[in-house]
Measured scan of single mutants.
Amino acid sequence: NKFNKELQWATWEILNLPNLNEEQVKAFIDSLRDDPSQSANLLAEAKKLNDAQA
């Protein structure tokens, strides 16, 4: 389904953001699992944090 694909994509993207530490990655992945419908928003937040920590 749509959420499953978005969840998989967001998870992959977050795992590959180079500037997030392990705790941050875990927190984003946990949030994705808690509410897959928020995957686009969570991915945007993760990318923003990744850029800020570059």
Rank of each mutant, 00 (worst) to 15 (best):
P18A: 13
Q53Y: 09
F28P: 00
E13K: 05
S37F: 10
P18H: 11
Q8T: 05
D35G: 04
T11A: 06
I14Y: 02
L20I: 05
Q8E: 15
L7R: 02
L49D: 02
L17P: 00
Q53H: 06
A54E: 12
W12L: 07
E13N: 06
A46S: 02
T11S: 07
A40R: 13
D35L: 06
I29T: 06
L15M: 13
A54W: 10
A40D: 08
L42W: 08
Q38I: 11
L7N: 04
E13Y: 12
S39W: 15
K26R: 06
E45R: 07
Q24E: 04
L17F: 07
N19P: 00
E22W: 15
Q53V: 11
D34M: 15
D35Q: 08
Q24D: 04
E23D: 13
I29K: 04
F28E: 00
K2F: 10
L15H: 11
Q24A: 03
V25K: 14
V25R: 15
I14M: 05
S31D: 10
N41A: 05
V25D: 00
A52Y: 15
N21L: 09
P36R: 03
K26E: 06
E13Q: 14
D35H: 07
E6K: 03
Q38E: 13
D30F: 07
E45P: 00
F3H: 09
K48F: 14
K2G: 15
N50E: 02
N41T: 12
A40N: 09
A10T: 07
E13A: 10
A54G: 10
L7M: 09
L43N: 01
L43F: 06
T11D: 03
T11H: 04
F28H: 01
A27E: 12
L49A: 07
A27W: 14
K5N: 15
E45Q: 12
Q38R: 12
K5L: 05
I14H: 01
K2L: 15
N19K: 04
K47A: 03
W9G: 05
Q53D: 03
W9K: 14
P18D: 07
D30W: 07
K47V: 13
N50P: 00
F28S: 01
E13F: 07
E23A: 13
A44V: 12
A44N: 12
I29A: 03
L15K: 11
L7K: 03
N4I: 05
W12V: 09
L49H: 05
N16F: 05
K26P: 01
K26A: 12
L20N: 00
Q8W: 08
S39P: 04
N21K: 14
V25G: 04
V25P: 00
E45V: 11
A44M: 11
L15V: 09
A40P: 07
L49W: 05
D35N: 14
N1R: 00
E6M: 03
K47Y: 13
L7S: 05
Q8M: 06
L20P: 00
K48D: 06
K26H: 08
A27V: 11
Q38H: 11
S37T: 04
N41D: 09
S37V: 06
A46W: 02
A52K: 15
E22I: 06
E13S: 08
Q53R: 02
A27I: 13
L7I: 09
N4Q: 05
P18L: 07
R33K: 14
F3D: 15
L17K: 01
W12I: 10
V25S: 12
N16M: 10
N1W: 00
S31A: 10
L15T: 11
Q24N: 03
Q24W: 02
D34L: 09
A44F: 13
Q8L: 11
N21P: 03
N41I: 09
N1K: 01
L15F: 06
K2D: 15
S31G: 04
K47W: 09
E23P: 08
K48Y: 11
E6R: 01
I29M: 06
E22N: 11
E6I: 06
S31F: 09
N41H: 09
L15Q: 15
P18K: 09
F28V: 03
L15A: 10
A27D: 09
D35R: 08
A44S: 12
I29N: 02
F3S: 03
L42R: 06
E22P: 10
A40M: 14
L7P: 04
Q8P: 02
L43P: 00
N16K: 05
S39F: 15
A46V: 02
D30G: 12
A46P: 00
K2N: 15
E22V: 13
Q8H: 04
N21F: 09
P36N: 03
A40G: 07
R33N: 14
N50S: 12
N21T: 12
I29S: 03
N4W: 15
L20D: 00
A40S: 12
P18Y: 05
N1V: 02
L42F: 07
E23I: 11
L42G: 01
D51R: 08
P18F: 06
A54D: 12
Q38T: 09
F3T: 05
D30M: 12
K48V: 09
K5V: 14
D51K: 14
D34H: 11
S39G: 07
A10V: 14
W9V: 10
L15D: 04
F28G: 00
I14Q: 01
N50W: 01
E22L: 10
S31Q: 13
D30T: 14
S31T: 12
A44Y: 08
N21Y: 10
A10G: 03
A10H: 06
S39E: 03
D30S: 15
F3K: 02
L42Q: 06
L32A: 06
N41E: 14
D51L: 09
Q24K: 02
Q53W: 03
K2V: 15
L32Y: 02
A52T: 11
Q8F: 07
P18W: 06
K48H: 08
E22M: 11
I29G: 02
Q53I: 13
S31Y: 13
D35I: 05
D34P: 02
S39M: 15
L32D: 00
I14W: 01
N19E: 04
N16Q: 14
D51M: 13
R33G: 08
R33Y: 15
N16G: 09
N1D: 15
N1Y: 00
S31L: 14
K5G: 11
Q53F: 08
K5A: 13
A54Q: 14
A27S: 14
L49F: 06
A46L: 02
Q38M: 08
L43W: 05
Q8D: 05
K26V: 09
L17V: 00
N16W: 03
V25Q: 12
E6S: 01
A40K: 12
K47H: 12
A52D: 11
E6G: 02
E45S: 07
Q53S: 08
V25Y: 06
N16R: 08
N21V: 08
E6V: 05
K5T: 14
V25W: 03
L20A: 00
E45H: 08
D35Y: 06
K47G: 06
N21H: 08
N1F: 01
K48G: 07
D34V: 13
N4M: 06
N16P: 01
D51H: 10
Q24F: 02
W12E: 15
D34W: 10
K5S: 13
Q8Y: 07
L32T: 01
S39D: 02
E22S: 14
E13G: 06
Q53G: 08
K5Y: 14
F28A: 03
L17S: 03
N50D: 10
K5F: 05
